[in-house]
């Protein structure tokens, strides 16, 4: 489903973020990507929705080489991925409903069906009935839940999260980790990066460890 083959990412100044990383994630897996800050976790995750392209090597999603994808085709790839970034990246001048609705607006969903999906996604993340609230009035954990609802509203087959619990206290972080587990149990392939691998230890059976751009561990 997700295949990295000898992926190298070199930034200007010859800084090497990834130095020949190879692994495969199969359909329905829950994988945690761990490592210290600067290990290359974010860079690796950015390769999947083509926010970054590899300097060399290949990234394949469902057999398709996305590292050489035309710019015009990238949006259509991203619509099939659920993305949760380190910061919630919500639109603070829009309501919770409008934020979660955005991916459906982008894909041109009929409004009535879209509203049903938004309600279902919010219920899934425990924010039922909070759709008219503004993000600024929510706690950090709730904002991250809104971001997760936005990521799953399009029913993606792959969910990618970059440090989704980075700014949350322990209780909120556990709730978020359990939420990802529930998506995985529903059949979604989940790849989560974290510097706190213990948090996901009993949710994710597989753990990839990055160190200075090199894959130094794979629990498989």
């Amino acid at each position: 489903m997700i295949l990295f083959e000898e992926v190298v990412k070199r930034y200007p100044g010859e800084y090497v973020a990834l130095a020949g990383v190879s692994f495969e994630i199969r359909h329905g897996e829950f994988v945690v990507l761990s490592g210290h800050s600067g290990a290359g976790k974010s860079t690796l995750l950015k390769m999947i929705p083509v926010i970054e392209r590899p300097s060399s090597g290949t990234v394949r999603i469902n057999g398709q080489d996305v590292s050489r994808l035309r710019a015009a085709a990238i949006p259509y790839l991203r619509r099939n991925l659920g993305l949760v970034l380190q910061e919630s990246r919500l639109l603070f001048d829009r309501s919770v409903f409008d934020n979660v609705m955005l991916p459906l607006v982008i894909t041109g969903h009929p409004p009535r069906d879209a509203a049903r999906r938004v309600a279902a996604a919010l219920e899934r993340v425990g924010l039922k009935g909070r759709d008219r609230e503004m993000p600024a009035g929510l706690s950090g954990g709730e904002q991250q839940r809104v971001a997760i609802a936005r990521a799953i509203v399009n029913k993606p087959s792959i969910l990618i999260a970059d440090e989704p619990t980075a700014h949350l206290d322990r209780a909120y972080a556990r709730e978020i980790a359990a939420l990802f587990k529930s998506f995985n149990e529903a059949g979604v392939t989940v790849l989560v990066s974290t510097h706190d691998s213990e948090l996901f230890a009993h949710h994710a059976p597989r753990r990839l460890v990055l160190g200075k751009g090199i894959l130094i561990g794979d629990s498989e």
């Binding site: 619509r79 955005l102 982008i106």
Partner: peptide, 16 residues
Amino acid sequence: RHEIDVSRLLGATDPF
């Protein structure tokens, strides 16, 4: 620009 960047991440095309 924030809304544009978020929309891009969520799969918005250039025409959108």
